[in-house]
Amino acid sequence: MHLHKYEKIWLSLGGLALIAFLVVLGVNAFAMGSHPPSHMAYVDPTKVDQTAPFDKPGLVQIGDNEYDLNMTAFVFGYGPAQIEIPKGAKVHFNVTSKDVAHGFSIPGTNVNMMVLPGHVNSVTHTFDQAGEFLILCNEYCGVAHHMMMSNIVVK
C-alpha cells in the first residue's frame, strides 16, 4: 500500500488535531470537572411523589448562595413551574421523570440534559445575571410536548 507524501502529512496533521481536541476535552472534563451530566442515582419511577427529595420539589439552600433545586418532570410540565433564584446563586439541578423521557434545557446556558424515568440527572449553573430564564423540554414526550416548560426568575 502506498501513501502519497502529501497525504501522509495531511493524515498526520489531521490525527494530531483530533488528539489535541481530545486532550483539551479530557483536561476540561476530568481535571476541571466539566463533565457532561452523567448522574448515577436511581429512583423508582412509579413512586417519585413519595420519594425524598422529589416529594417536595423546590429550592433548598445548602451553602452561601448555593442551592439544590430538586425538580420533577412529567407530561407536560415541571414541578415547580415557577422558581425564584437570588442573583449570583450557584444552583445544582437534580431532576427525575415521573413517566417518559424528557429534556431539560435553559437556552443561552449550558444547562441541557436528559431526564429519564428511574434516574436522577444533575447539572450545575451559576446565575450571574438577573432576568427571566425558560426551562424547556427538548426531548419529544407526547402530544403537548411543546407546552412543557417552567420559568425561572433571577433577582
Binding site: 502506498h2 502519497h4 507524501k5 502529501y6 502529512i9 495531511w10 496533521l13 489531521g14 488535531a17
Partner: peptide, 24 residues
C-alpha cells in the same frame, strides 16, 4: 510507479489544508 512521481497534487494539498483550518 508510485503515484508520487506521477502527479504533483499541490492543489489537493492546499485544499485539504484549508479544510483542516476550517475544522480547527
Amino acid at each position: 510507479h508510485p503515484p508520487e512521481e506521477e502527479s504533483s497534487l499541490r492543489g489537493t494539498f492546499v485544499s485539504v489544508l484549508i479544510l483542516g483550518a476550517l475544522i480547527v
